[in-house]
């Protein structure tokens, strides 16, 4: 009857632990000494990716400048384009320990139906930086400007194969469609967009796709070595130095649209007011430090600081813009 005794034991231990756990509420008042104890910095994507890079750099600058004195360990919680972490944030509603980073996929994953949660289910603390889209072709490509590509698409919508690293309906796809929409291409749905998983630049180098829509920081090395040629970038001003500064904007080429890959810092939904004002103040100070400016330069990030409330307004605006494009291609959910 040994088995039965083990089963009884399992049940007993289980009930005991469950009681202890559920008895444990979280009614501490940590307002006065905030932040105290470990903070929980989370990248909603894998190690080494854009979000990871942003939040690790932020944590490092905050530590080096002494703006935040407590320890800020960074962990990764990847999955479904950041949606997995967005769901876990709902479980820590109203708490103040979790700090996370997001960018346009926060809005896109909600609009395309990946997740029910939107930018309204997080607390925007500050927009920090911007990267821009760049549209690159192989060095020997016949296309010289964005307009060449658009003309070709107008003549035959299937003639130019667009590639990107994100999936259909996500950032690399949308940032191209915004430009195509601006020049008046109607059947955006018909444009062939091929999603590659990180290896898109190899595909455009090998001539397997015609145009690669990506982030400027992803292909700096290949543009500098002149293996890839940039047709245009999506900012409203020239960025960077040297050969990067030579890349004209879409606006200069007469395409009246911009796309900003913004990255900002967020807290959990209904973050307590004392914590929100603490972080707004910290980030306002941080963006002025030399350490932050140096980090931006190293990574090729443009300054895009916006305080929490303004950031929230901005999120509302881009939400409408992305909604328009997604509904044109029938991916609005």
């Amino acid at each position: 009857m040994e088995k039965r005794r083990i089963v009884t034991l399992i049940a007993a231990v289980f009930i005991l632990t469950a009681t202890v756990v559920f008895a444990a509420g979280s009614g501490e008042n940590e307002e006065a000494q905030y932040p105290k104890g470990n903070l929980d910095f989370v990248a909603p994507g894998g190690a080494g990716g854009g979000w990871d890079l942003t939040i690790r750099t932020t944590a490092k600058v905050l530590k080096d400048t002494g703006l935040v004195k407590v320890s800020m360990p960074v962990r990764n919680n990847p999955g479904a384009g950041g949606s997995v972490h967005l769901t876990s944030l709902q479980e820590v509603k109203g708490t103040a320990r979790t700090i996370t980073v997001y960018s346009p996929p926060l809005i896109l994953t909600n609009l395309n139906g990946t997740t029910e949660y939107s930018y309204n289910d997080v607390t925007p603390l500050a927009r920090l930086i911007a990267d821009y889209a760049v549209y690159v072709v192989a060095a020997d490509s016949p296309y010289k400007t964005m307009n060449d590509v658009m003309t070709a698409l107008k003549k035959d919508i299937k003639s130019v194969k667009i590639g990107g690293n994100s999936s259909v309906g996500s950032m690399d796809h949308i940032q191209f469609l915004i430009m195509a929409k601006a020049v008046g291409i109607k059947n955006l749905k018909e444009i062939d967009y091929v999603s590659f998983d990180e290896s898109g630049s190899a595909q455009v180098l090998g001539g397997h796709i015609d145009l690669f829509s990506t982030g400027l920081s992803e292909v700096l090395g290949l543009i500098e070595s002149r293996d890839l040629r940039a047709l245009a970038q999506s900012s409203d001003h020239r960025v960077g130095e040297g050969i990067i500064a030579e890349i004209s904007t879409c606006q200069e080429q007469g395409i009246d649209a911009t796309f900003v890959n913004w990255r900002g810092i967020f807290g959990p939904p209904e973050m307590p007011e004392y914590a929100v004002s603490y972080w707004r103040d910290i980030f306002a100070k941080m963006v002025k430090t030399d350490e932050w400016k140096a980090a931006r330069k190293t990574n090729g990030w443009d300054d895009a600081y916006l305080d929490g409330p303004d950031f929230k307004t901005f999120l509302g605006e881009v939400n409408e813009e992305y909604k328009g494009v997604l509904s044109d291609i029938g991916m609005l959910n």
């Binding site: 894998g46 190690a47 080494g48 990716g49 990871d52 890079l53 690790r56 750099t57 990180e198 290896s199 630049s201 190899a202 180098l205 920081s217 992803e218 292909v219 700096l220 090395g221 290949l222 293996d227 190293t298 990574n299």
Partner: peptide
């Protein structure tokens, strides 16, 4: 040579390279 990470490990290593400027 191309700045293209072919695997999870090299993707992280590339992230590290970028962080180091």
């Amino acid at each position: 040579t191309l700045g293209i990470p072919g695997s999870g490990t090299t993707a992280v290593m590339m992230g590290a390279l970028l962080m180091l400027g």
